[in-house]
């Protein structure tokens, strides 16, 4: 190919990526530069409040913003909640999704299995706002199904939206409700990809169904389990904002059970407009996530060389 033609090709292909590349620059890389805000006492410069002026006229504050993150009375609550829920849901999500995928695969009538799959996947497509109304239909203090049932049967009604002790269970159910369908389908796709001759060989050797699941299915799923696990561990300090913000209706009396770092950062940013501190929170999330991903990857690599992510 001539030099001119090759030059022309480069130009044209570059114009193709350009809109996207500019978007990434403006909406992803520019905010990365904004991380400096974590080390500044962000103030709006009143004379000419452009981003640049605000940035340069704000004073340096060292690591004060980070100190505040750990010094408030809420610190322990949101750290415990974020990591606790994530750890629990990683384990539960993995076990239940793999179990469902195996069940779906074992069902003899493929049409029935397909129907189950379709129904299970449905909540994944709904927003948390919609889900919060679904839950409200059951838990509403005056009209809700459950409280009416309790009253009709001579029991005291429960003020769900003001009683934190129920919310770890409710949030867990909501999270599984929305996400299990999706991860079971991922695992099911991996199971259907397993070479059937492995099962036949195992069956001829006299392996029972349980043994086949344990010695054929699970080992075949291992790479996928490891990858999803590493990615989820990387997100251990990130919470699903919608779940924790809209589903408990942002009820203040539930914060001890529902406050996570994402909702905390949002609150700091909107209620007190402390940009520096919420930036510091975001940076902390990123840093913790990065370290966790590297450690998880190392551990997986130690156990099984091929299943690690990088």
């Amino acid at each position: 190919m001539s030099k001119k033609a090759s030059f022309k090709k480069t130009i044209f292909l570059t114009t193709m990526v350009l809109p996207g590349a500019i978007w990434f620059f403006l909406l992803r890389y520019l905010p990365m530069a904004g991380i400096i805000l974590a080390f500044k006492n962000y103030k709006v410069y009143p004379k000419n409040p452009t981003f640049w002026n605000n940035l340069t006229h704000s004073e340096w504050s060292g690591i004060k913003n980070f100190k505040f993150l750990f010094a408030t009375t809420d610190s322990w609550t949101y750290i415990r909640n974020t990591i606790g829920y994530n750890a629990l849901w990683i384990v539960l999500g993995l076990v239940i999704a793999v179990a469902f995928a195996i069940m779906l695969n074992e069902i003899t009538h493929k049409f029935v299995a397909k129907t189950y799959q379709t129904l299970m996947f449905f909540p994944y497509f709904l927003s948390w706002v919609v889900a919060s109304y679904f839950l409200l239909a059951f838990l509403d203090p005056t009209r809700g199904l459950i409280d009416h049932f309790l009253v009709n049967h001579g029991m005291n009604k429960i003020d769900w939206y003001n009683t934190p002790k129920y919310w770890p269970f409710i949030l867990t159910i909501c999270n599984l409700w929305k996400n299990i369908g999706y991860s079971s389908i991922l695992y099911l796709a991996a199971i259907t990809g397993i070479d059937t001759s492995q099962y036949e060989a195992a069956a001829i050797d006299g392996a029972s169904k349980w043994q086949q699941i344990w010695y054929v299915t699970i080992p075949n799923l291992r790479p996928m389990i490891c990858i999803l696990l590493i990615m989820n561990v990387g997100k251990i300090f990130n919470a699903d904002f919608g779940l924790f913000y809209t589903v408990p209706l942002d009820s203040g009396s539930l914060y001890s059970a529902t406050m996570v770092i994402d909702t905390y950062i949002y609150q700091v940013m909107t209620a007190t407009s402390n940009i520096g501190m919420s930036t510091a929170g975001g940076l902390l999330q990123n840093a913790v996530g990065f370290v966790c991903i590297v450690i998880a990857n190392k551990i997986v690599k130690k156990i099984d060389e091929d299943s690690s992510l990088f």
Binding site: A21, F24, P31, G34, L37, P49, I265, S278, G282, N286
Partner: peptide, 27 residues
């Protein structure tokens, strides 16, 4: 270069507050 340019954003980002500030004041 452009592969890295896009996929690096999956690993690292500015977070909520700087993105919000950039969108509001710069864009």
């Amino acid at each position: 270069f452009f592969t890295f340019w896009a996929f690096f954003t999956m690993l690292f980002g500015g977070g909520l507050a700087p993105t919000y500030v950039v969108c509001k004041t710069v864009l």
